[in-house]
């Protein structure tokens, strides 16, 4: 009985510690890509899939990159009349085992006030700032007419 109790306590402790540790180490970023820009006047964009393999929700609070004065997650939405609009979405919570897809026509990383042109074939560093840590990724720049990393 005493042993069982100890085992349960140990398991609980392990579970709690792993839950507490859920953070950037449990986050996987897949298929990042960006579009080449024409100069620096127009905003740039980046797409990716962010997966949370941890046991607790994670919150994506901000984006940082040297290529843009300001980077934010925006969402394009199209209403039933076919009118498209775009707005910042604020914090994004990713539940355990879930993922968030940043893809054309939906969520995207909006890179405002570009500091340098995004050149096809180059890549740039983008930092995803979560509430409890950061994940840095390398984003390859595809052509302006690219539809995704597969094509």
């Amino acid at each position: 009985m005493k042993n069982t109790c100890r085992t349960i306590t140990l398991m609980l402790a392990l579970f709690l510690s792993s839950a507490a540790l859920a953070g950037p180490s449990d986050i996987t970023v897949e298929k990042p890509w960006s579009r080449a820009s024409i100069g620096t006047a127009r905003p740039g964009v980046a797409y990716m899939v962010i997966r949370n393999d941890g046991a607790t929700p994670v919150t994506l609070a901000a984006l940082q990159t040297e290529v843009a004065g300001m980077a934010q997650i925006h969402q394009t939405s199209t209403n039933e009349q076919g009118v498209s609009s775009m707005a910042p979405v604020g914090d994004i919570v990713i539940q355990p085992g879930a993922f968030v897809a940043l893809a054309p026509g939906g969520l995207h990383a909006m890179l405002m006030n570009l500091q340098q042109p995004l050149v096809e074939g180059d890549s740039f560093s983008l930092v995803l700032v979560f509430e409890d840590g950061e994940v840095s990724i390398d984003v390859p720049v595809l052509g302006i007419a690219a539809r995704g990393p597969e094509e």
């Binding site: 127009r42 964009v45 394009t76 199209t78 775009m86 054309p104 995207h108 890179l111 302006i144 690219a146």
Partner: peptide
Amino acid sequence: FTFCPDICPTTLADISG
């Protein structure tokens, strides 16, 4: 409009395809 980073280049890329 050409300052649109998401839906316009995607539509133009779709149309090109």
